[in-house]
């Protein structure tokens, strides 16, 4: 994770290193087969993320003040923010998924913000994390959709007011569109974070390289300015992607609750 060896290398920050390996599951015993299970830097930051969220929310509301302190106010704002989002996007019935959406939002937000510290690992920049989060939402939508509506859930693929002879074309399209949701859902999160971090790293690396180049050192101010501006942008993106992920979760959940278009 500490990558002083090659500061210009923008990919290295995403490297996963094992702290200790528990072993491999499956595989034929040869090197590279099976699924390796290890406690990694990624896992460390997942744990830290959960600890920070839980610690913050539980400690700040310990006093249960009628008049909130600064920390309690922040916790309450998070709560109200997500509660409003779920209620406006998925209705009152969607409120049963409020803890789920809240956990998603806070997890992504804090993981993204952790990524803003130098030498910290960004959990959400990994494809598999974003895909798993999106799949979680997708599976929840499908399972709840069928539980609540039974086969009425298929109405999701059959837009109302369409003549029967275009159905055979529209339904596959709708089906692919529905299946593409977890993909776009995760692509957006992971793509934004990954791209932001790479670009940031490239500009940071340029600063270091220019400073090391002696005569060109004064020029380092240019990429440095860019890096500063991008850092601000990245903070916005970190919050925005958590928000968008939560909003889309609400939208998808709303489809599970009200499948008819």
């Amino acid at each position: 994770m500490a990558d002083n060896a090659n500061p210009i290398e923008p990919i290295h920050q995403f490297e996963i290193s094992n702290f200790f390996t528990f072993g491999t599951i499956g595989g034929d015993g040869t090197e590279g087969s099976g699924v390796e299970i290890a406690f990694t830097n990624s896992a460390l930051f997942m744990v830290l993320t959960v600890l920070v969220i839980a610690g913050f929310l539980i400690l700040s509301t310990r006093g249960r003040g009628l008049v909130p302190g600064r920390m309690q106010l922040l916790a309450e704002m998070c709560y109200e923010f997500i509660a409003n989002m779920v209620r406006t996007s998925a209705g009152t019935e969607g409120m049963r998924f409020f803890p789920f959406v809240f956990s998603l939002f806070m997890f992504i937000l804090i993981a993204n913000l952790f990524g803003m510290f130098p030498y910290f690992f960004t959990v959400t920049s990994h494809l598999i994390v974003a895909v798993m989060l999106a799949l979680m939402v997708f599976i929840t939508v499908v399972v709840y959709g069928f539980m609540r509506n039974g086969f009425g859930f298929f109405k999701l693929f059959v837009p109302s007011g369409i003549p029967w002879y275009v159905m055979w074309l529209v339904v596959p399209i709708e089906f692919i569109s529905f299946l593409s949701r977890p993909l776009s859902h995760s692509l957006r999160l992971f793509g934004n974070i990954l791209a932001g971090h790479i670009v940031l790293k490239v500009f940071g690396g340029m600063v270091v390289a220019l400073l090391a180049a002696g005569a060109w050192a004064p020029l380092a101010i240019l990429p440095f300015g860019m890096a500063v501006a991008l850092t601000g942008l990245e903070f916005l993106v970190a919050a925005l992607q958590a928000f968008v992920f939560a909003v889309l979760t609400c939208v998808y959940l709303n489809d599970a609750i009200h499948p008819g278009h």
């Binding site: 599951i25 699924v35 299970i37 896992a43 997942m46 959990v123 598999i128 994390v129 989060l133």
Partner: peptide, 10 residues
């Protein structure tokens, strides 16, 4: 190669 542990820990 890292998917397994990431999924587990996630």
């Amino acid at each position: 190669a890292t998917f397994g542990s990431q999924i587990l820990w996630l």
